[in-house]
């Protein structure tokens, strides 16, 4: 069974078409890069998969079922912007996640936070933007989900921490689970990607195995992307 299947998906806001006949199917055990320029439709697509936006037409199936309450149980989602109550301490947010998600592993979260030198007794308001992003990523990766969807997980973090985050993603996703990472920082993440999906102007224009693509084009994914989307 496919982990994720998207069929003839369209989404419009008023007269503006954001997604146009998107078809995509993903299996388990893969890390997929969702790559596109600003405004290409990445976040809209991700929000639809997470049932936060309704499609204008078309279908999104997670493990064979239409998205809804059940799919939220198996998808661990890192949104672009934080939704956490910043008045809370990190330890309180951990409790909050424990209440919300059966598959949340609080010990794992504490261990990862400790590795990143983040103090669980600190209030989120006292932390920098990059630190808050790290906390959020740790929470998301500490769930034993089937599908992790990370929308721009590296935006606000320094290059040294990026490497640690990539390793965290690599070593913490469940066997059989898949990870979708949306980003435009391609060169930083391409080494861990199994597959790449290029999205432009609301359409999927390429879906390929990343090493096959490198071999075929004799170039890095980053170069291929730049060539294709040259302004």
């Amino acid at each position: 069974m496919k982990l994720l299947e998207i069929k003839h998906l369209n989404k419009s806001f008023g007269k503006k078409e954001i997604l146009k006949d998107v078809n995509l199917s993903l299996t388990g055990g893969k890390i997929i890069g969702l790559l596109g320029k600003n405004g290409a439709g990445k976040t809209t697509l991700i929000k639809i998969i997470n049932d936060l936006l309704t499609p204008t037409s078309g279908e999104v199936l997670v493990k064979g079922k239409k998205v809804g309450i059940e799919s939220k149980k198996v998808i661990s989602y890192l949104p672009e912007r934080t939704y956490l109550n910043k008045q809370m301490k990190v330890s309180e947010v951990i409790e909050y996640f424990k209440d919300f998600y059966d598959d949340f592993d609080a010990d794992k979260a504490k261990k990862l936070l400790n590795d990143l030198d983040l103090d669980i007794n600190e209030h989120l308001t006292k932390m920098s933007k990059g630190m808050q992003e790290k906390v959020q990523l740790v929470l998301v990766m500490s769930r034993a989900a089937d599908l992790y969807i990370l929308d721009e997980p590296l935006g606000g973090v320094d290059p040294a921490t990026r490497d640690y985050i990539l390793d965290t993603i690599l070593s913490n996703f469940n066997e059989g689970a898949s990870v979708i990472i949306s980003t435009h920082l391609i060169s930083d993440i391409e080494r861990i990607l199994d597959e790449v999906v290029f999205i432009d102007n609301g359409k999927i224009i390429l879906h390929s195995d990343s090493d096959e693509l490198r071999k075929k084009e004799n170039a890095s994914i980053d170069d291929i992307f730049r060539r294709m989307f040259k302004c």
Binding site: G29, L166, D167, L170, S171, R191, D194, D211
Partner: peptide, 14 residues
């Protein structure tokens, strides 16, 4: 191996 090389397990498998 994947952890040592810091690569995707699927790539290591290949």
């Amino acid at each position: 191996f994947a952890v040592t090389f810091k690569v995707n397990p699927n790539t290591m498998q290949k």
